[in-house]
Design a protein around this nucleic acid. Structure first.
Lengths: 215, 215
DNA sequence: ATATTTTTTTAGTCTAAACTAAATTTATAA
DNA sequence: TTATAAATTTAGTTTAGACTAAAAAAATAT
């Protein structure tokens, strides 16, 4: 498989998590920052290889084969992220682009050995689950902060948006994986909330609470 | 730079080590396992980018810019090899193809941090010198076993041929970096020699002694 | 129910990197 | 020194992956 094919599979996989029907050409083009016509070209090629199911004008779905490939790429990406943060001292907002490259390196033994070296981590630096060698994702029980209830003990366990800007925002607020959070107040009007974190009371917007996973 | 351009630069660099004039199109095609016409195409592109000096029918030479790029690729390749062997438990005959892929990953910080993580190694698992960040190669004093003299204390410090088959041959003879070697006898007829290594006397061909660096 | 808008596909173009076959230049040998 | 051989370049094709513009299909709105 080429890098480009792998990127398509990965994106189709991610889009599939929020939809149980076919993924549209436009949605893929959008996520890939490319054009619908390019997407049509590629999904036809992926369909020829039995990696996706495709009927004209109906969007695509991953086949079992395609899903396995996609999950393997996710596994590689997340393992590399762990490596970069825990061994090479990168911060969680610096690893995405590098892992994007490393995820295409082709060597099963490399990934097995890396996994072992990292002591079989189950989540990446953003709290996302790492598929094991068999392609099974550890089920992580988690909930959006925006949907949690007032005055309960919550732990920050992951981000929904792992963009650099959001991660840096969290750094600035001193919120990191494992931080304890308590919701002190919710504002009906704009769904903002006052939370207690690290002994500090701060106000966060709905946009923020929608991108924080807690347990 | 594309992967292909990087591969060309790297090969031209390696060929330059054995020649101080222009590197021929044929030599490059041979080393790349490709065709001379493809090489001509590429070196014209590299010349446009000021990475090589090229005059039709006269072969190429790296410019300073090209040499720097090539050395940086060699640096990345060798650092990754060290990582694979010393951290991930690979054997020295297993790392070449993986490092061939990893050498194209693009991130200066990644390489700096990797270098530090590995504690600034000066040679790779085959005894080849690792250029530092500035592109300087540590001068390693070494000599071919085939050119060493009888009855002196020698140390095996590197291989000239790092093909899987040669490395596995050395493994089978229990010869590894750091092994002490003494030449007991040289055979004029075919330049084979009897050596003492690890308390064992073995006969090695000229082909073998020509691919072993000692100090 | 038809017209309009949106989405998707098709057709054709472009670039990178390879190739083959033919032409040209350089090297070698009679 | 000319003829032949070898090396190199050029010209033209191919494939992958992108693109634009136009055509076609599906969705939506009047």
């Amino acid at each position: 498989m080429t890098n480009s094919e792998e990127n398509y599979l990965k994106i189709i996989y991610h889009l599939s998590l929020f939809s149980n029907s076919g993924i549209s050409t436009n949605a893929i083009a959008n996520a890939m920052d490319s054009k619908p016509s390019s997407v049509t070209d590629m999904i036809q090629k992926l369909a020829d290889k039995d990696l996706v199911l495709y009927k004209k004008y109906q969007g695509v779905q991953l086949t079992e084969k395609g899903r396995k490939e996609a999950i393997y790429i996710v596994r590689k990406h997340r393992l590399w992220e762990v490596f970069l943060v825990s061994k090479l001292g990168f911060k969680w907002d610096e690893v995405h682009d590098i892992a994007e490259q490393l995820e295409h390196i082709n060597s099963e033994k490399l990934i097995d050995n890396l996994d072992k070296f990292l002591e079989f981590p189950v989540q990446d630096p953003h709290g996302d689950p790492i598929p094991n060698k068999e392609g099974n994702l550890p089920k992580i029980k988690r909930q959006l902060l925006s949907e949690a209830s007032l005055h309960t003990k919550l732990t920050f366990v992951g981000v929904n948006d792992s963009s650099t800007s959001f991660l840096q925002y969290l750094d600035k607020q001193n919120i990191s994986l494992g931080s304890m959070i308590e919701i002190l107040d919710k504002e009906e009007f704009d769904n903002s909330m006052k939370i207690l974190v690290n002994g500090q009371e701060i106000i966060i917007s709905n946009r923020v609470s929608n991108n924080i996973f807690i347990k």
